[in-house]
Nucleic acid binder design. Structure first.
Length: 592
RNA sequence: GCUGAUGUAGCUCAGUCGGUAGAGCACUUCAUUGGUAAUGAAGAGGUUCAUGAGUUCGAUUCUCAUCAUCAGCUCCA
C-alpha cells in the first residue's frame, strides 16, 4: 500500500471513528450524521447536533475517539439493497437522502464498526480499529457548513480533524500551519507599514507611503512589459449611467455586486442612476467604438489599471485577498479570429515573465463551452481548438487541466493557477475569449474584402488584482521583496551627525540612479537606526562613518546576511543597484 | 448572507468573579558622540476598554442590537 492509499484508508476510517464518538457523546437519537470525506490534511465530518460544538469539546471528543480505538473492534463490510439501507438508516435524514438518490436495484455497501455503529460507505477501510492506533490526529476546528454546499439548505456543524500516519508527520504539518500564520499578509502588512483598513470603508485598502511605493513598482513592471508588447494604456470613467450597464448586461446580471450612485431624485432604477464600475470591459468597448476600424489595425490592445468596485456580502472580505475596491492589470484586446493564436501565445509569454520574477510557478486550466453558451457553436469549437493547440504547444498535451463546460457563457477561457512557497494555489491570471460583448456593443471592423466583421475580444489579467497579488507575494516571500520591488531599496545610516553630509551625497547619487532610498539623519545611536531599517526589511543598509567618507566607500549590510561587506566603492555599489533594477532579479546580490 | 469567535494605548497583549484600567515595543525630554538588531533616567499617551441601548446605586466587565475583523461554509480577482 503506498502512502496515498494508506492516508485514504486511515483518514476515511478515522472519520467513522469520529462519527461514532460524536454519537456516543450526544446520544444516537440526537445526532444526524451526514458525510465525512478525507481532505488534504485529514478529514471532516458534518453533523446536525442539539448544540454548538466549541473548542472546549475537542478534548472530550478526541478522548472518546481514542477510547473507541482501544476497543479493537472489527470492521465488517456488508452489502444491502436500497430498501434494507433505508430501513437501517431510518430517522437519518441525510443518509436517507443519499440512499434515495441511488439507482433502484443498486447494491449499497455499508461498514460496521463494532456492533453498534454503521455507516454508508464505499470503503475501503481497516479490518480492525487496532490498525488506527498508531495514527496521529487532532481536531482542528468546528465550523458551519451547508448540507451539500448549498446555502439554501441546512447548516450543519463540520468538525475538521488533522490526521497523519504518525506523530512526526502531524507535527510537521502543525509547523507548516504555524509558518503560514507567520507569513500572514495582514500581519506583515502592518509590520512593514504597507496598508491599512478602516471600518468606514470595509474591504477598501488604504495604501500607506511604503505600500504605495511597492504598488507603483508593481504597476511599473506591468507597464514596462506591456509597452514592449504593443499595449496602449487607457483610463476611463469610474462611474457610468445605468444605460451603459444595461447594454453590457451588468444591470441585469451583476447589479447586486455594484455600488450604485443615485441621481438627482434618488429614485431607484431612475435613468440618471449611476453605478461604479465592477469591471473595465464596457468602457473598453466604448473606447473601441469611438471610431471605425480596419483589419489592418488589429490587434488593438487597450490595457487599463483603473480602480474598480465590487460590493461583497458581509463575511466575504479577507485582508487583501478579497476586497471591495481594487485594481486589475486589465486588458481588452480586439482581434480577428486568425489573430487569436498568436495573441494568446504572447499573453502566456508575458505571464511567464511576470510569475518567474517572483519565483512563482503556475499551471494552466482550460474551461470550455457551458450549456448556456451564447453565440455561434462553430466559433466556439474553433476557438477551443485554437486554445488547446496553444496549450499543447506551450505545456505539452496532458500538462494542463480541462474543465469541460466551465467556461463563461460568452467564451472559453484559460485560467492560470499559481503556486506559492507553501504549495498553496491561487487563481490570478485569466485569459478569456469573448464573443458576446462586441456583439452587445455592436463593434465592427472592415475586413480585407470590404465587409463589416465583428471583432473578438480577449480579456486578460495576469496579476489578477494588484491587491490580491500583493497579498500573495507578501506571504510567498515572507515580506522579503526583491530589490526592484521593495518600498525602499537602500537605507543609509550615518554613524554620527558629522557624517550626514556624506550620507546626503550618497542619497542624492542613488536617487539620481533611480534607486528608492531612505536615510536617518537624526542624532541617535546607529544601532537604533539600523534596527528600524532591518525591521522594514530594506535590501541594503549602508553604514557610513569616517573611514567610508575618507575612501568614498560604503559598508553594506545585505538583508538576510549576518556579515557586512566593507570598503565597497560607492560607484560600484550604485552599479550593482542599477543592474538589479534593470534585471529585476529575484535574489539580492550579496557579493559585491 | 450562514455558523462560531474576537474587538482594551500607534503595535503586540494582560486585566477587572460589576466599583471609573496595566506591561513591553514605539513616542517625548535630558544625558550618552556611538562601527552593525533594543544605552540610561524621566515623561506623556486610553474623550475609560468598537458603537448604541438595557439591567444596576454603579458596567470596560452582565444582556440585547449594530458595526468591523478573523476562521470555516457559500460566492469570487
Amino acid at each position: 500500500m503506498n502512502n496515498e492509499q494508506y492516508l485514504e484508508v486511515y483518514r476515511h476510517s478515522l472519520s467513522h471513528i469520529l462519527a461514532k464518538a460524536v454519537i456516543e457523546i450526544f446520544g444516537a437519537e440526537n445526532v444526524q450524521y451526514a458525510i465525512g470525506p478525507q481532505i488534504s490534511d485529514g478529514f471532516y465530518y458534518d453533523f446536525l447536533l442539539p448544540r454548538t460544538i466549541t473548542e472546549d469539546d475537542f478534548p472530550a471528543i478526541e478522548n472518546k475517539m481514542r477510547e473507541i480505538l482501544k476497543r479493537r473492534e472489527d470492521w465488517k463490510r456488508d452489502e444491502v439493497s436500497k430498501e434494507e439501507a433505508l430501513e437501517l438508516f431510518k430517522g437519518q435524514k441525510y443518509k436517507t437522502e443519499i440512499i434515495e438518490e441511488l439507482e433502484d436495484g443498486e447494491t449499497i455497501s455499508i461498514y460496521h464498526t463494532g456492533d453498534d455503529f454503521v455507516d454508508l460507505c464505499r470503503g475501503p477501510h481497516v479490518n480492525n480499529s487496532q490498525e488506527l492506533m498508531g495514527a496521529a490526529f487532532k481536531i482542528r476546528q468546528a465550523s458551519g457548513a451547508y448540507w451539500r454546499g448549498d446555502e439554501k439548505r441546512d447548516m450543519l456543524q463540520r468538525i475538521y480533524v488533522y490526521a497523519f500516519p504518525n506523530q512526526q508527520e502531524l507535527k510537521a504539518h502543525l509547523a507548516f500551519i504555524k509558518e503560514a500564520l507567520e507569513r500572514d499578509h495582514k500581519k506583515i502588512g502592518t509590520q512593514l507599514d504597507l496598508f491599512m483598513f478602516s471600518d468606514t470603508a470595509p474591504g477598501m485598502p488604504y495604501w500607506l507611503p511604503r505600500g504605495w511605493k511597492l504598488y507603483n513598482a508593481l504597476m511599473k513592471f506591468s507597464r514596462d512589459l506591456q509597452d514592449r508588447h504593443g499595449y496602449q494604456e487607457i483610463s476611463a470613467p469610474l462611474i457610468n449611467y445605468k444605460k451603459l450597464w444595461v447594454i453590457s448586461g451588468h444591470w441585469a446580471h451583476y447589479q447586486n455586486n455594484m455600488f450604485l450612485v443615485p441621481g438627482t431624485d434618488w429614485t431607484p432604477n431612475a435613468d440618471d442612476m449611476m453605478a461604479a464600475k465592477p469591471m473595465n470591459c464596457p468602457n473598453a468597448m466604448m473606447t473601441y467604438k469611438r471610431t471605425n476600424h480596419s483589419y489592418k489595425e488589429l490587434p488593438i490592445r487597450y490595457s487599463e489599471m483603473d480602480v474598480i468596485h465590487r460590493k461583497e456580502k458581509s463575511g466575504q472580505m479577507n485582508g487583501l485577498f478579497r476586497v471591495q475596491e481594487f485594481r486589475q492589470d486589465d486588458d481588452h484586446t480586439f482581434v480577428s479570429e486568425d489573430l487569436i493564436e498568436s495573441e494568446v501565445a504572447d499573453i502566456i509569454s508575458i505571464a511567464d515573465t511576470i510569475y518567474s520574477a517572483f519565483g512563482l510557478t503556475y499551471r494552466a486550466e482550460l474551461s470550455t463551452r457551458p450549456d448556456d453558451f451564447m453565440g455561434d457553436i462553430e466559433v466556439w469549437n474553433k476557438a477551443e481548438s485554437i486554445l488547446k493547440e496553444i496549450l499543447n504547444k506551450r505545456y505539452g498535451e496532458g500538462n494542463y487541466e480541462i474543465n469541460e463546460g466551465d467556461g463563461a457563457f460568452y467564451g472559453p477561457k484559460i485560467d492560470l493557477q499559481i503556486r506559492d512557497a507553501l504549495g498553496r494555489e491561487w487563481q490570478c491570471g485569466t485569459i478569456q475569449l469573448d464573443f458576446q460583448l462586441p456583439h452587445n456593443f455592436e463593434l465592427t471592423y472592415t475586413d480585407k474584402d470590404g465587409s463589416m466583421k465583428e471583432p473578438i475580444v480577449i480579456h486578460r489579467a495576469l496579476y489578477g488584482s494588484f491587491e490580491r497579488f500583493i497579498g500573495i507575494i507578501i506571504e510567498h516571500l515572507k515580506g522579503r521583496f526583491p530589490f526592484w520591488l521593495n518600498p525602499y531599496q537602500v537605507a543609509i545610516v550615518p554613524i554620527r551627525t558629522e557624517h550626514n553630509d556624506y550620507a546626503k551625497e550618497i542619497e542624492e547619487a542613488l536617487t539620481d540612479a533611480g534607486i528608492r532610498v531612505e536615510a536617518d539623519y537624526q542624532d541617535k545611536h546607529m544601532n537604533e537606526k539600523l534596527k528600524f531599517f532591518r525591521n522594514m526589511m530594506d535590501p541594503y543598509v549602508l553604514v557610513v562613518g569616517d573611514k567610508e567618507r575618507e575612501n568614498r566607500t560604503v559598508s553594506v549590510t545585505v538583508r538576510g546576511v549576518k556579515t557586512q561587506l566593507h570598503d565597497v566603492p560607492l560607484d560600484r555599489f550604485i552599479e550593482i543597484c542599477k543592474k538589479q533594477n534593470k534585471e529585476r532579479n529575484l535574489e539580492l546580490i550579496s557579493e559585491i
